[in-house]
């Protein structure tokens, strides 16, 4: 994947360089470039790395939303509306992907042309036994309505989830994602986090409040 800075995009309407390839900050024109031509990072004018400034991402997302959302007055023709809907959906997906650390790591894996975590279901060796034990613990505590045990189990799962997220961040930060071995390690952690998330979903809602 090419460097995001190497491709200055010009607005098709006013020919000015655009910070984001989908909407011109100068003249407000929507740019009908096919979204497959640029990465989610390029969309927001960000470097394609795991470490991104989430505040900046959010500000750029909101600025772009203000320009391309279908509610912006004056977009009345069918084709303007269709274009705005397509761009907004693409922008929303890009934002959700980059905002969420797991999805962002998964996306970096995709940019590095690696198989996705879902394609390769491998997990760290010790994970399944641990998940099994915690799941039983949740089921028993739910059955017995043991709020204390549920709360402590939840805390344990949250701790595991946090550690896995830290591991994901550290692999993305220091490792070379083009290396198959690094990719493999990342995929294992990405799959692990899904197990923790599923466990958290199983804990009754009352425990949280």
């Amino acid at each position: 994947m090419s460097d995001s800075k190497s491709r200055p995009v010009l607005c098709t309407e006013c020919s000015q360089p655009m910070e984001s390839p989908i909407c011109c900050a100068g003249c407000g024109a929507l740019n009908p470039l096919p979204p497959s031509l640029f990465t989610y990072f390029e969309l927001f004018g960000l470097e394609p790395t795991y470490e991104i400034d989430l505040g900046e991402l959010r500000r750029k997302y909101l600025t772009l939303s203000r320009s391309i959302h279908p509610d912006v007055a004056g977009r009345t023709s069918d084709s303007q509306r269709a274009q705005s809907l397509a761009l907004s959906s693409g922008l929303n997906r890009a934002y959700e992907t980059l905002r969420n650390p797991v999805d962002r790591a998964e996306y970096l894996l995709h940019l590095a042309n690696g198989p996705s975590a879902a394609d390769d279901k491998s997990v760290p060796g010790e994970l399944l036994g641990e998940v099994m034990m915690l799941r039983e613990q949740i089921e028993e505590a739910t059955e017995a309505n043991d709020q204390d045990l549920l709360a402590s189990t939840r805390a344990e799962v949250l701790k595991q989830q946090k550690e896995t997220l830290e591991e994901i961040a550290s692999i993305c930060r220091s490792g070379d994602l083009k290396e198959p071995a690094t990719q493999q390690r990342l995929r294992q952690q990405l799959n692990a986090v899904k197990y923790w998330n599923n466990l958290l979903e199983k804990i009754p809602l009352q425990v949280e409040s």
Binding site: D53, L54, G55, E56, R58
Partner: peptide, 16 residues
């Protein structure tokens, strides 16, 4: 105001 993404446990998404 534009502040950095908060680093608290819950808010990890660049909230202001």
């Amino acid at each position: 105001s534009s502040s950095e993404g908060s680093s608290s446990e819950q808010s990890q998404d660049g909230s202001d």
